[in-house]
Amino acid sequence: MDPFVVLVLCLSCLLLLSIWRQSSGRGKLPPGPTPLPVIGNILQIDIKDVSKSLTNLSKIYGPVFTLYFGLERMVVLHGYEVVKEALIDLGEEFSGRGHFPLAERANRGFGIVFSNGKRWKEIRRFSLMTLRNFGMGKRSIEDRVQEEARCLVEELRKTKASPCDPTFILGCAPCNVICSIIFQKRFDYKDQQFLNLMEKLNENIRIVSTPWIQICNNFPTIIDYFPGTHNKLLKNLAFMESDILEKVKEHQESMDINNPRDFIDCFLIKMEKEKQNQQSEFTIENLVITAADLLGAGTETTSTTLRYALLLLLKHPEVTAKVQEEIERVIGRNRSPCMQDRGHMPYTDAVVHEVQRYIDLIPTSLPHAVTCDVKFRNYLIPKGTTILTSLTSVLHDNKEFPNPEMFDPRHFLDEGGNFKKSNYFMPFSAGKRICVGEGLARMELFLFLTFILQNFNLKSLIDPKDLDTTPVVNGFASVPPFYQLCFIPV
């Protein structure tokens, strides 16, 4: 058959498939802009700032609406009420993970971030239990974070109060905490193996944040037939998995079943207990991918939040002064901060919360999916439909947070200066898919920041009023603009 005829037939089939998918069930789905064949609503979305586009569309179609990214149908949730109703009140029905062709290629359905069903539930339950087990290797997770915080302070001392970009050092600290939990080992910041790991993690975040990856996920045929950065992403992930597998083999040879040292040991012990169960989800494949998931999810998000926190503290020296006064009063100079201190430091706690609220790190979270046909607000959402959640619409709700575009710790303080919780605080998402490392991340943010401010004054290279804190939105995360500062020993 003539190649031209084959091409026309293929394009015609794709067009018909697109029209059929977009028209099927439209009477039951939430409203939304009319999609174009094949490309859907992509032309109506700013790929570099999806969150802003969703906010604009919500003003037209309401808090629940339908979009098509290519052939992929998505239902968008915008605003606290619908997000709570879906992710919390109907948590089980909305607990699936959205379709990610690239991740599915890399992870093969294993791990904790992109798995679904029984596998996801069992691996998540085990990971939560293990991360909360403060007795691994007779050292609590808090001990590990405190140790890394001391190392971080010593690295900052080496800058000798000269101007520096904190990106690298602030990236090393949370990565080392995860390494300590998974591998029972922290690395020197100049260790070549550690630097290679950091390089792969950072490069992957840069790649994932590009519009090209959005295109690959919406048109998965590209993955096999086109060159691009997605190939580098898959190569980096394969490198990390190979490295983790080597460490798993080392653990198998040296493990003491009665004295687990780290996450890998705990997983291997669980595998041993379930070795007679042919349906067990505790396999080497799941261990390797879960460890890679924890490394990827637990490094860049925390380091970016820390980097943004220091920029905001530079911009608002009056806030920094209040935090340091609270540190001096509650902790002093002669001991290290600990998590028990947080309950006695409402202002510092409010500042950490406000940093996370203000920066809105992951504006749309990772997409969910419905696990069955769901009736939601008089609409029928078919099983498997991807759910896109606007966390921006919750964290920047102007009824809950007056002047949401302003950095103001009073958003989390009552009139008496006591810490005030808010149900709208969802930087880790909400419901059954809430970030498994939430507790660890909150511990790291509090301890790293208090250790830094206990030991250093922060000095800006320019007038604080002239510092730009506008986030650089890159399609996946909101990151701070480049800046330098000086760490002046107190």
Rank of each mutant, 00 (worst) to 15 (best):
Q484K: 13
H230D: 03
L15V: 12
T290I: 08
V6G: 13
F412H: 02
Q278W: 13
G298R: 01
E203K: 04
N457V: 08
R377Y: 07
R124T: 02
V83C: 10
H368Y: 04
C338S: 14
D143T: 10
A477I: 12
G439E: 15
F419E: 02
V153W: 01
C151M: 12
P37F: 04
Q324D: 05
P404H: 06
L295R: 02
L380I: 09
L77C: 06
F69S: 08
F476V: 15
D165E: 08
C10I: 13
L67D: 01
G40V: 00
A103R: 11
L195I: 08
I327Y: 00
S478C: 12
E400R: 05
L11T: 15
Q324I: 12
G111S: 04
R342T: 10
F419Y: 06
M271E: 03
E318R: 10
L366Y: 10
Q484A: 08
G135I: 14
E326P: 00
E272K: 15
Y61K: 02
N176A: 04
V76Y: 04
L237I: 12
Y68N: 13
S209W: 08
L201M: 12
L170H: 00
L361P: 04
G437W: 04
P404E: 06
A321I: 15
P404S: 10
E438P: 03
T469I: 15
E328C: 12
L131P: 02
K375T: 11
F168Q: 12
I213D: 05
S58F: 05
S365T: 05
D2Q: 05
A291T: 13
A477E: 14
H411L: 02
C175G: 10
R108L: 06
S254F: 08
I215R: 06
C13G: 14
N474V: 08
A369H: 08
G137M: 13
D188Q: 11
H344M: 15
L287F: 02
I257Y: 12
E92K: 07
G298H: 03
G228N: 05
F412N: 00
I88A: 07
N378R: 10
A321E: 13
N107Q: 14
Y424G: 05
E250T: 09
V288N: 05
L445K: 02
L234A: 07
R144A: 13
